[in-house]
Write a protein that binds this DNA or RNA. Structure first.
Lengths: 222, 222
DNA sequence: ACCTGAACACCGTTCAAGT
DNA sequence: ACCTGAACACCGTTCAAGT
């Protein structure tokens, strides 16, 4: 009856936790419910995340942020740093041949999609540092692109910060507009002539996003 | 001993809740602790926020978002809608005579400051609609400014969305960079030449913010 | 190594009761 | 109207124990 190896793994725990978050909301992710979903006692999770829920949250943010995740099935283990730079089967990453702005556009759309797909997890991002390896790959992509664009030094860092800010902010702007209105939403009246006149003007969110992105990339050119 | 009027008010509750959030973090704001801080039983709070903690969170977000809050002491009561448009003492708002871009710059800096001052409360913003009266005032300010800049129709709405996205995102970018690093932060190595080369390049956050803001406002001009 | 079961110190919220 | 006190159904996490 009582199995003592339920095939639990950090990956399975993260995936299941994310399913609960996406389906029921962040507040309904509890260790006990997660245990139920994994068909395991809640306390079993602590064997894989000894630091508890906070560590699980860290892993969830890292998981979502890893937009360029390799397909499931590959090993997630960190391999010990070897003298030789290459591991067998660890294929050399083919450099993206497209111009810098197209690469950034693709990244922005992919990242936006990843955040929107897990919008319920967004509150977890705010107070977690982006110092995972996935974040590092993103930074490298940004810096390489803006360097190719003709920027250098602090201007590159600045441009990357603006781009990242825009994408994050645009997703939040989009998410905040969804959801059910407050019990007594304020409605524009005569005191707010511009807001009244433009009430109901709505653009397709993705179109709005890419338009804003384009004008922003233009402004970041040297 | 047992008083039955402790002078509780929504404003006092919100202020005290915010003090706990700012000082100890969002997760440590509990009804019981908040009751203690107010020198009242936790259940007394429910008399002022019948819908419980979620309603309190709504009020906290509205409070922080109200950057142009009138000084404390004035009545917060909603007065019944009167036939006459003006109340005695409800001074007509003097229109800001400065050009549109300066008005937007001031707004952006004020809003950034308000968010940074209560960074611990930021997770509460993500899933709450900006349909308070304070949000409406902000929208009016944005729309009026971008109209004055020469935009019209959907372009105005688009520009306001981009501006709001940037400010929110920039604050989050700034907040995420603070805080203590993860237990095993990823460090750029040979695989990330640009990230390695630009490591340690840091700009003053406010300067970075205004620089990004300026280039963004430039790009939003017609 | 991996999981269970009981226990502890908390939570948010309801409800009847006090003044 | 405004607040209290007890109670209920949960939480996260610990610890010793099982296999």
């Amino acid at each position: 009856m009582s199995r003592n190896n339920a095939g639990l793994s950090t990956d399975r725990i993260i995936t299941e936790a994310l399913r609960i978050i996406d389906g029921q909301g962040l507040r309904r992710l509890t260790m006990r419910r997660l245990g139920d979903a994994l068909e395991v006692e809640a306390m079993a999770i602590y064997h894989h995340f000894p630091l508890g829920k906070e560590q699980l949250f860290d892993a969830i943010v890292a998981y979502i942020s890893d937009v360029f995740r390799r397909p499931a099935g590959e090993d997630e283990q960190e391999d010990p740093p070897g003298e030789d730079g290459e591991e067998a089967g660890d294929a050399e990453e083919a450099p993206d041949p497209r111009p810098w702005d197209e690469r950034l556009r693709t990244w922005a759309l992919d990242y936006r999609r990843a955040l929107l797909d897990h919008a319920q997890a967004l509150p977890l991002f705010i107070h977690r540092r982006p110092d995972t390896e996935a974040a590092l790959r993103t930074r490298e992509l940004h810096y390489a692109a803006f360097t190719e664009a003709g920027l250098s030094g602090a201007d590159v860092v600045q441009a990357a910060a603006v781009l990242d800010s825009y994408v994050t902010g645009a997703v939040i702007h989009e998410v905040r507009a969804d959801g059910l209105p407050a019990q007594h939403p304020a409605v524009p009246d005569g005191r707010f002539p511009h807001a009244s006149a433009l009430r109901g003007v709505e653009l397709d969110p993705e179109h709005r996003f890419t338009r804003g992105l384009d004008s922003l990339l233009d402004s970041l050119r040297p």
